[in-house]
């Protein structure tokens, strides 16, 4: 039994055990919750990198509702069309579209569902969108506090309608930061999508118009960033005055549901037309 193990190292040796570190790749990015000398958490920034590789997701806040759309990249022709949904419902009035690591997104929405359910149990009403964004921001942020967990590899766009605030659109990032937006975009094509969103007269457009614009923006962003890959467009909305029979729980409010197929098909047709008209230098067959 070597007793030297218990003895402290000579002082000088312990001071210079690690080299002096300043930036990336120098030891401050190895563990979550570690501040670098300039006050950054590199692990969170790496998580953001994971998001930047995901399919583009956008959200549009309109005067009468919210539209969510994702570019679902198709890895194989063997996948059933319309399967593997990427936009999830939370309660009946909120939709969450995520970009990044899909399992992280599933866990994130599962947490959002229990937040909504707990809210209902306590307050007997659907959770307001801002409260949901707040709760989920807090949850994501908790995953930046400990070295025993890793940050979420997702950026979530949370959209819905509530009684007090009307349409609400929020985006929560891996750091836990979350803001309300008129239009939000994340994933690989976010730059192109943001540029297009900024051109829209938000939030004064209708959900129908937003559906057309969302389809166009997803097609545009796809063309810009991952043209060689196949993709499927997935779109949902939450709109006022559209109570379906299943919507007994929240009468008179918006219900998060898929955009009707005919409307999506129409929007996709227009999107393809605008691509052909606008980008003739990159001709397709």
């Amino acid at each position: 039994m070597p007793s030297s193990v218990l003895q402290p190292l000579p002082l000088q040796e312990s001071i210079h055990h690690f080299p002096v570190m300043t930036s990336i790749g120098t030891g401050y990015d190895l563990s979550n919750s570690v501040f670098s000398p300039d006050g950054r958490n590199f692990q969170v920034e790496y998580a953001t990198k994971a998001v930047e590789n995901g399919g583009t997701a956008i959200g549009i806040r309109c005067k009468d509702g919210v539209v969510l759309a994702v570019e679902k990249l198709i890895g194989s022709k063997l996948l059933v069309l319309g399967s593997n949904k990427r936009i999830a419902s939370v309660d009946s009035h909120i939709g969450i579209a995520c970009s990044g690591l899909i399992p992280d997104a599933r866990h994130f929405t599962s947490r959002a569902r229990s937040e909504a359910s707990n809210w209902r149990k306590l307050y007997r009403s659907p959770i307001p969108i801002s409260s949901m964004a707040d709760a989920m921001g807090g949850y994501a942020q908790a995953y930046t506090l400990y070295s025993s967990v890793r940050p979420f590899g997702v950026t979530a766009i949370i959209g819905g309608m509530d009684e007090a605030g009307g349409p609400g659109l929020w985006m929560v990032e891996p750091s836990g930061v979350g803001w309300g937006y008129f239009g939000a975009a994340t994933g690989r094509g976010r730059q192109a999508a943001k540029a297009e969103l900024e051109k829209l007269p938000l939030p004064n457009i209708t959900v129908e118009e937003a559906v057309r614009q969302a389809a166009r923006i997803i097609y545009f962003a796809h063309d810009d960033n991952s043209k060689d890959k196949d993709f499927e467009l997935e779109m949902t909305w939450v709109r006022l005055e559209k109570g379906s029979a299943e919507d007994a729980a929240v009468k008179g409010w918006g219900k998060h549901e898929e955009v009707p197929k005919e409307l999506v098909a129409e929007a996709e047709r227009l999107a393809k037309e605008s691509m052909e008209g606008g980008g003739d230098e990159e001709m397709e067959e």
Binding site: S92, R113, K121, E246, A249, E258
Partner: peptide, 15 residues
């Protein structure tokens, strides 16, 4: 108001 409402909400999650 509690059980049946949340039952329906959860069922619709499957989509």
């Amino acid at each position: 108001e509690k059980l049946l409402d949340s039952l329906i909400i959860k069922e619709e999650y499957q989509n």
